[in-house]
């Protein structure tokens, strides 16, 4: 079924009005808009999840839980130096005490009880961010810990995967949910087209009967409807896409203003815009196909 064939048909005058039914382009516009929003959310989440997952999977946090601040500082320096020289390690960054205090501020506050002064009740751990050349698995963590024990008996190593994994599980579930939503929206659009075309078939029944008796083939008759559905789908798709893009742009402006880690990193990749641009086209083709299917099915019921 060629779109060119659908759009260029000399028998197009045979049906009385230009469109299948009044509200159909607007229904398609709403469906395209909702699909674009759902699609954008899914793509952005998928992109963020896959990017962060790859980065975080290679990250590890080494903590030194030494109460004595001088010993802790010495051990931090030694552990850092040791890690830097390992072939599996890409980079190492030891966080300053101020940075650690800032990290813990949401839980511990800015109380003077924390820190390394003599009156401090809560000692801070030394934290070292390690980026590995490979994925940080348990075997590697255990090996590193074994090698670090002689330097510091209180050393601990955590992969970031352990705390991020539940979040990514939720994100994956959301992506699957969004995919289901997109499929449901496509199905709803298809159903809308079927109902509109059935109604139009009833409206134009006498015209179609005449054309049928003059020798119109099922394909010729279905092209008349496909043409009208294509016009409605182009209009609805364009409107839905435009409103959807504006909405996504406004949302992305708001999201980029968030300082929250993972949420702040969510953005629409370039390939995402291409996929979004394909949504109205896919909806258009789906609508045209459903129109053809509905008409040909109806025509087969008559001789």
């Amino acid at each position: 079924m060629a779109l060119k064939e659908t759009l260029a048909n000399d028998q197009s005058k045979a049906l009385s009005d230009g469109r299948i039914a009044g509200p159909m382009p607007w229904v398609i516009a709403i469906m395209v808009f909702l699909t674009i929003l759902a699609g954008a959310a899914g793509i952005a989440m998928f992109d963020s999840a896959s990017q962060n997952n790859e980065q975080l999977a290679r990250k590890m946090t080494v903590q030194i839980l030494e109460e004595d601040p001088i010993a802790r500082q010495t051990q931090r320096q030694q552990v850092r130096d040791y890690l830097q020289n390992l072939p599996q390690v890409e980079s190492v960054r030891a966080l300053s005490d101020e940075e650690v205090a800032e990290l813990l501020e949401p839980w511990l506050g800015t109380n003077s009880n924390i820190g390394d002064s003599a009156s401090n009740l809560i000692p801070l751990p030394a934290i070292i961010d390690v980026e590995l050349k490979q994925v940080a698995n348990k075997a590697l963590t255990d090996t590193l810990l074994r090698e670090l024990r002689p330097i510091s008996s209180s050393v601990r190593a955590d992969t970031q995967e352990s705390w991020v994994a539940p979040l990514y599980d939720v994100m994956q579930s959301l992506i699957i949910l969004i995919l289901g939503l997109v499929i449901l929206l496509a199905a709803a659009t298809a159903a809308t087209v079927v109902l509109a075309v059935r109604s139009a078939l009833d409206t134009h029944r006498s015209t179609l009967d005449i054309m049928h008796l003059m020798g119109s083939t099922d394909s010729q008759i279905s092209r008349l409807f496909q043409r009208r559905v294509a016009v409605d789908a182009i209009f609805g798709g364009t409107v839905g896409f435009a409103i959807g893009c504006i909405t996504i742009w406004l949302l992305s402006m708001q999201i980029s203003g968030l300082s929250s880690g993972i949420v702040g990193q969510i953005s629409m990749p370039c390939y995402g815009w291409i996929i979004l641009a394909l949504i109205p086209l896919m909806m258009g083709f789906l609508s045209i196909y459903m129109a053809r299917w509905t008409v040909q099915r109806a025509m087969k019921k008559i001789l």
């Binding site: 000399d10 028998q11 005058k13 045979a14 009385s16 015209t207 009967d209 005449i210 003059m214 020798g215």
Partner: peptide
């Protein structure tokens, strides 16, 4: 059984259009 939304010309031309005759 003429098509009321078409002119006399278009009604008469309909079988030829169905047969694929060029305009």
């Amino acid at each position: 059984r003429l098509l009321n939304h078409l002119s006399a010309f278009d009604n008469i031309a309909l079988p030829l259009r169905i047969s694929g005759i060029e305009e």
